[in-house]
């Protein structure tokens, strides 16, 4: 009787985490008679009586309110089809794309064309798990410059950090603008290609070490080592001059 797994243990499906009625299964776990069993590969989190498995991998599942980065894959009568890296394609309707009135039969490519990368927000998830998007709102737009990388969506919270602390540190130290989509797409805009490479490297490093303890310290040291002897301009005004369009503000902290 009692708990068999420890906090932060990595568990796999079929593993017994606890026995008896003192504990309750939460996400990634289920009860079978006396036992609480893991149903996902992940890290154990014990919260009083609740035993939860926090997933470490898996495709992005769309959630209302999430800011994501997607790619236009098709144009239909009613709007744009967007690949956001989840099971189902997302939909950006005409009236949600712009506050302008779009006339019937208008050339939709003047707004978004196939292959365009956009920052959008999910305002609805349908019964068949398809996301409805909007690009109306601050920071929601088409991306025209900068680097786009993929990370696992399950690692996004670690890249952002508590109240955005991790991403702020990376942005400050590398002097870059970074937008983290909840779907694991990360957009980086740097003045200096060298800083871009460092920012990419550090984000990939966080992804690979997301399950480790004391990540902030590891990242801080990593960045310090990388930036040693490098002269980074912390002239923020220059970075802003570089922008033609407003870039996503705090969108990345949107959880």
């Amino acid at each position: 009787m009692g708990i068999l797994a420890k906090e932060r243990d990595i568990v796999v499906p079929g593993e017994i985490l606890a026995t008896g009625m003192d504990f309750l299964p939460a996400g990634g776990a289920y009860r079978d008679k006396e036992d609480i069993i893991a149903s996902q590969v992940g890290m154990i989190q014990i919260d009083n009586r609740l035993v939860r498995v926090v997933p470490l991998s898996g495709r992005y599942a769309s959630k209302r309110g999430d800011t994501i980065i997607g790619k236009v894959t098709d144009i239909t009568f009613s709007g744009w089809i967007i690949d956001i890296g989840c099971a189902k394609d997302a939909m950006l309707g005409l009236k949600d794309a712009t506050s302008e009135f779009i006339e019937r039969g208008a050339d939709l490519t003047q707004y978004f064309n196939i292959g365009d990368i956009i920052v959008a927000k999910i305002f609805n998830v349908t019964r068949v798990k398809s996301a409805d998007l909007t690009t109306k709102g601050p920071g929601l737009m088409k991306l025209t410059r900068g680097r786009l990388i993929d990370i696992q969506s399950t690692k996004v919270p670690r890249v952002i950090g508590k109240q955005g602390s991790m991403i702020m540190m990376i942005k400050d130290m590398t002097n870059t603008r970074i937008t983290v989509g909840q779907n694991g797409k990360v957009h980086i805009l740097a003045q200096d290609p060298e800083m871009e490479l460092i920012a990419v490297e550090v984000i990939k490093m966080i992804e690979a070490n997301a399950h480790k303890h004391g990540l902030t310290e590891i990242v801080k040291k990593f960045l310090d080592d990388k930036l040693k002897g490098k002269n980074i301009s912390i002239d923020k005004t220059k970075a802003i001059v570089l922008e033609k369009k407003p870039i996503l503000k705090n969108g990345e902290e949107n959880v």
Partner: peptide
């Protein structure tokens, strides 16, 4: 499948 993060009641 487990590595891909699927919910599985067992292996």
């Amino acid at each position: 499948l487990a590595d891909a993060g699927f919910i599985m009641k067992d292996l």
